[in-house]
């Protein structure tokens, strides 16, 4: 005799939908985000299929939308900005998702082990994390990229290497509070192996916190990628990302007279991050019942 389905606790997704009904910002963000993601991930492969986005035809100055007969004009290298925007947005999202995901894998691993075992192991791991957190990670990433070359792979590697600490701390705090709960002690008394407890009993209870924070971190990472690439210390010209496209804005003449070579990626970044933040904030409220609107 199982319980009737309606008595099961609502899933994170259902709670999220319930939260959306009370938070118009989040609802707006979620809808716009879905539209944008669909457009980017369907549009980019299509554009790549029909056009060579990186095909260059240098001109002295960027060509305006009206003169070139394209939607967002051409840049000084003669590349179609509208097409590039899709590909760049997709690249940025791939890259930041990879970074966020990998730093979570590391963070969950370290954080949960630290929080679950506690005591001396926890103490040691946390001291290491504290030390690692003191290192100015942006500077380190920049230096490592200079030494090892600026490719998407090195970017992901070093970025992950220097950002997992925050995730580990968060997960450790969450694991520490779970550890003291009765269901863990009960399971330990029954003789369940620690590994089984961590994976099958503790982790499912940490998912809510992790998912909410994941989304917010994703937004922050988009911002950092944009910043680094914009200054020319992130990715190079051969890998179009939103930040790389915005490098045009560092040229005062382009900034003043050729809006189409820097404004579209700028607006897209802000809108994307805004949507992701709205959604992430709603998720965070769902994960922490005290903050819920409903």
């Amino acid at each position: 005799m199982g319980k009737p389905a309606s008595k099961r606790p609502p899933t994170l997704f259902r709670l999220f939908l319930r939260e959306l009904r009370h938070d118009y910002f989040a609802l707006f963000g979620a809808v716009l985000l879905i539209i944008l993601l669909l457009a980017i991930f369907i549009g980019a492969p299509l554009i790549n299929h029909f056009h060579d986005v990186m095909w260059v035809n240098p001109t002295p100055l960027p060509t305006s939308p009206a003169d070139s007969g394209t939607i967002l004009g051409l840049d000084a290298l003669g590349r179609n900005q509208f097409h590039m925007l899709f590909v760049a947005a997709r690249n940025t999202l791939y890259l930041t998702f990879a970074i966020t995901f990998l730093s979570y894998v590391l963070g969950i691993l370290v954080g949960v082990v630290s929080g679950f075992y506690g005591g001396r192991i926890d103490n040691f791991i946390m001291r290491v994390c504290d030390t690692w957190a003191m290192v100015p990670f942006l500077m380190m990433v920049i230096v490592f990229l200079i030494i090892f070359g600026r490719t998407p792979l090195t970017f992901i590697t070093f970025f992950t290497l220097f950002t997992w600490v925050g995730r580990a701390r968060l997960l450790r705090a969450a694991a520490l509070s779970q550890r003291q709960m009765d269901y863990i002690s009960a399971s330990k008394t029954l003789g369940t192996p620690n590994f089984t407890i961590i994976v099958r009993e503790m982790l499912p209870n940490l998912v809510d916190v992790a998912v909410a924070n994941f989304v917010l971190t994703l937004a922050a990472n988009v911002g950092i990628e944009t910043g680094l690439s914009l200054l020319g210390f992130g990715l190079g010209w051969d890998f179009p990302s939103l930040g790389v496209m915005m490098q045009n804005a560092t040229n005062p003449m382009f900034l003043q007279h050729f809006w189409w070579v820097w404004a579209p990626p700028l607006v897209l970044v802000v809108v994307l991050m805004l949507c992701v933040n709205f959604v992430g904030n709603a998720l965070q409220r769902v994960a922490d019942p005290k903050q819920r609107l409903v």
Binding site: T226, M273, V276
Partner: peptide, 10 residues
């Protein structure tokens, strides 16, 4: 939220 979504350089 807008401030949160605005990279410093932007």
């Amino acid at each position: 939220f807008i401030a949160l979504s605005m990279p410093t350089l932007v």
